[in-house]
Design a protein around this nucleic acid. Structure first.
Lengths: 221, 221
DNA sequence: TAGATTGTTAATCGATTAACAATC
DNA sequence: TAGATTGTTAATCGATTAACAATC
């Protein structure tokens, strides 16, 4: 009995794990593995088979009892579910070191992402090329968004201009923002923001390592 | 009654949130705010006051009934708890675009992190300077670790050499690895790894945006 | 003191795991 | 068919929230 169309709320955790399954499946298909069980795949990832099946169950049924999953089929269906059957066009704002690194990330292309515009406010940077794309004046962003359909906005600008950039992106029809600026962005309800706090992750790493070293917590209040 | 020294297990979530509290408190102290209640701080972060107090409760008591928290004191105590009262020395392996961007990240210094070595395998990159540090041959890493105390290893190399680098780091006494390579690293138990999967986060963003657009899940199995 | 807000326990909620019937 | 593994429900576990006594 196939699962009926639904509009339940999907936990963020589940969404994040689906992205992981997607990556593993892509690797498998690339390696020519054409079949996998929930047990094998979950072992590889480091979760339980129950959790993997439960996660997939949110979206329908993808396998075959007594057999497992056909990697290529599962990959294709997850890809479509995520929305990566359609290419995603992106703009990046903030062509500093991190912005340049992301703009130069070659494998975006084979993963379905197209960077179509880079913007900055620094006159010394505007007009230079990054990975073959000319850096435009950020004041052009608004009109660029009127002329082009953009799915994703990447903010690698500093904290202070980030909210203003998010406003322009939101108004310009971009409903997904990948934010590297250390500010909490306020955006319309229909816009999704994914924050990347690299420093938080480094701080957390230090804390984890110290907890381990101390053998738990040794509170010395 | 002060909490006794303990060695319970701290959930990763709690550890991650402590890093967030730390960032907010730093901002507050910088802004000259010297007092805050759990209600105010949690509102700002977007969590409940209960959760904030519960999280802190894992590590002791930090406030004053009827008053709240003194930001400077709380910041200092969390800093010490995390282990950032001591400076963290780091090496970075993989001086490509992303590695260079991270190596050039100025504010590591005021946050207590010192990058003391950069390594790469590419002869064209070895010998060049990034942010004032010479890029060394990755074959020097092992001996470098014998001569220097290193707290954190940052892997921004490609997937294939990542495990080998992790092995050298682990053997060289580094017990915290910040890994940007899209591989699951196998390390000794005393070593902590924090994986950064930037592409997963981008894929998750696309999925979230599409779920929102579709108004939930519309399964078309 | 009275008011406020913490520290901390208890209740609730949600997520993970276990189990097993369905079925390939 | 028999064996295997999914899909799916039920049980467990853990994390979040609520509540309130302690106390500044």
């Amino acid at each position: 009995m196939p699962k009926q169309p639904s509009s339940e709320l999907i936990p963020k955790r589940v969404v994040d794990r689906i992205a992981v399954y997607y990556r593993y499946l892509q690797n498998m298909v690339d390696q020519g593995i054409d079949r996998i069980s929930s047990k094998e795949l979950s072992n590889m990832i480091g979760i339980t088979a129950s959790q993997l099946r439960q996660d997939l169950h949110f979206f329908g049924s993808f396998g075959q009892q007594g057999f497992g999953y056909r990697t290529e089929e599962l990959l294709y269906r997850i890809k479509k579910l995520i929305g990566l059957d359609l290419r995603q066009s992106m703009v990046l704002i903030g062509a500093g070191n991190l912005g340049s690194a992301i703009a130069s990330y070659e494998s975006f292309v084979n993963k379905g992402f197209d960077l179509i515009g880079i913007f900055d406010s620094n006159p010394e940077v505007i007009g230079t090329a990054i990975n073959g794309l000319l850096v435009q004046d950020v004041r052009e962003l608004e009109s660029f968004l009127q002329r082009n359909t953009v799915n994703i906005g990447i903010i690698t600008a500093p904290a202070s201009p980030a909210q203003g950039i998010a406003d322009i992106l939101s108004a310009g029809g971009v409903n997904a923002i990948w934010n590297y600026a250390p500010v909490k962005l306020i955006v319309p309800k229909h816009v999704t923001v994914e924050h990347i706090h690299l420093t938080d992750s480094l701080v957390s790493l230090v804390f984890q390592a110290n907890i381990k070293k101390r053998g738990g917590i040794s509170e010395n209040s």
